[in-house]
Amino acid sequence: MSQTFRSDLPIYTQLIELWQRDIASGTLPPGARLPSVRDLAAELGVNPNTVQRALTELERAGLIYTQRTSGRFVTEDAAVIARCKEALGEGLIRDFLAAMKLLGYQKQDILSLLREEKEEES
């Protein structure tokens, strides 16, 4: 029961985000087998129906697939994973830009700040 959840959002949406990130980042590599619903639920300390709901959503999005006898697997379709990664990245950038805008930054300032950050890194 190590996972902590935000209390203002349904847990299943948080689970979807969590697994989307894991798949996009490769923490859950393509073709990886997922544990059973019961084990996932026990590990996360959440209701099995909630886990089931999140997995169903991911399956609908094509990120995982079910093999009737052997369980659930992460998709091996690189294009789907790339799309997911892109969507997550866009979301992060949108949030970032919105937050910066609240602080009063203009687009130009943000770009130059990012460039500086990149130079420091290298």
Partner: peptide, 12 residues
């Protein structure tokens, strides 16, 4: 349902 409460109320 717990999900409905969190969705509709935005709180735990």
């Amino acid at each position: 349902s717990v999900d409905e409460i969190r969705e509709a109320q935005g709180k735990s």
